[in-house]
């Protein structure tokens, strides 16, 4: 009797995922495998970055405070890239919020609990989704318009050079699991609906939602990847890896925020403040 429920929840989450995230793994793979008529512009050094920036700035202008745009040109390259990362993160947090609302039971939770789940879940979800846009050589950016190489990101000055390499290392292990967007939709829902985030008031209600998602995820993986029976436990292990990745990322961002002349977007400040 659980079979129809399982299928409908998996389908519902997959549809919400395709609706709310402008980039998904299927789309990203088309760009990353060079199957588009206009291949992404490759950013691999300062010259190609400057060339790409004009386009990136135009794309971001709609989202960006005018003060940020006018001071952008005067900033050093690392600070500019940090700012771009922040705007991309804010956009993804907005998408994740809409996706979370589509998880059955989420919107009925206490509003403060919803905030807590997002505060602790969005970066874990973001890094899981970011893997779809990565291969061993680089990262797809600007809606598939650009590809920034891993080597270039590593060549930035410290501490900015330490920002992306751990995400690439995670992404290579994560991408080896060969999940598709329907799997990722349930995985992201499981990340968000997590009963052990600090400060939750109605833990049992969240655990009920979490259990139903995890149950559906397990069955969905068995039917979608019949040859890989260990996929479910492997994926649960990735939840722990993501938590560690976010802890380290939060420390790095707090460090950059203290030592560099780089301001943090108010939404991201809310998320990082008193996080761990």
């Amino acid at each position: 009797s659980q079979q129809p429920d399982t299928k409908s929840l998996a389908k519902q989450m997959h549809e919400a995922y395709l609706k709310h995230f402008h980039m998904n793994k299927a789309k990203a793979r088309v760009f990353l495998t060079g199957k588009t008529s206009t291949p992404p512009f490759v950013i691999h050094d300062m010259d190609t970055l400057q060339h790409a920036e004009q386009k990136l700035i135009t794309q971001l202008l709609g989202n960006m405070a005018s003060g940020d745009v006018s001071t952008l040109r005067e900033r050093e390259v690392e600070a500019r890239l940090f700012l771009f990362c922040q705007y991309a993160s804010v956009a993804t947090v907005t998408e994740l919020t809409e996706f979370a609302k589509a998880v059955p039971g989420f919107a009925a939770l206490d509003l403060n609990d919803q905030v807590t789940l997002l505060k602790y879940g969005v970066y874990e979800a973001l890094f899981a989704l970011l893997a779809s846009c990565m291969n061993k050589d680089g990262l797809l950016v600007a809606h598939g318009g650009g590809f920034i190489t891993r080597e270039f990101l590593k060549s930035l000055r410290k501490p900015f050079s330490d920002m992306m390499e751990p995400k690439f290392q995670f992404a290579m292990r994560f991408n080896a699991l060969e999940l598709d967007d329907s799997d990722l939709a349930l995985f992201v829902a499981a990340i968000i609906c997590c009963g052990d985030r600090p400060g939750l008031s109605d833990v049992s209600q969240i655990e009920r939602i979490q259990e139903s998602i995890i149950h559906v995820l397990r069955l969905h993986l068995l039917s979608n990847h019949p040859d890989n029976t260990l996929l479910f436990p492997k994926l649960l292990q990735k939840l722990a890896d993501l938590r560690q990745l976010v802890t380290e990322h939060a420390e790095l961002v707090q460090d950059i925020n203290k030592t560099e002349d780089a301001s943090l977007h108010p939404l991201l400040q809310e998320i990082y403040r008193d996080m761990y």
């Binding site: 960006m64 947090v93 907005t94 919020t97 997002l118 108010p266 809310e270 008193d274």
Partner: peptide, 20 residues
């Protein structure tokens, strides 16, 4: 609540863009 006012707003208003 004040500490997370943008997250509150995102959760409550489905189509409101983040005030940047």
């Amino acid at each position: 609540k004040e500490k997370h006012k943008i997250l509150h707003r995102l959760l409550q208003n489905s189509s409101s863009p983040v005030d940047l």
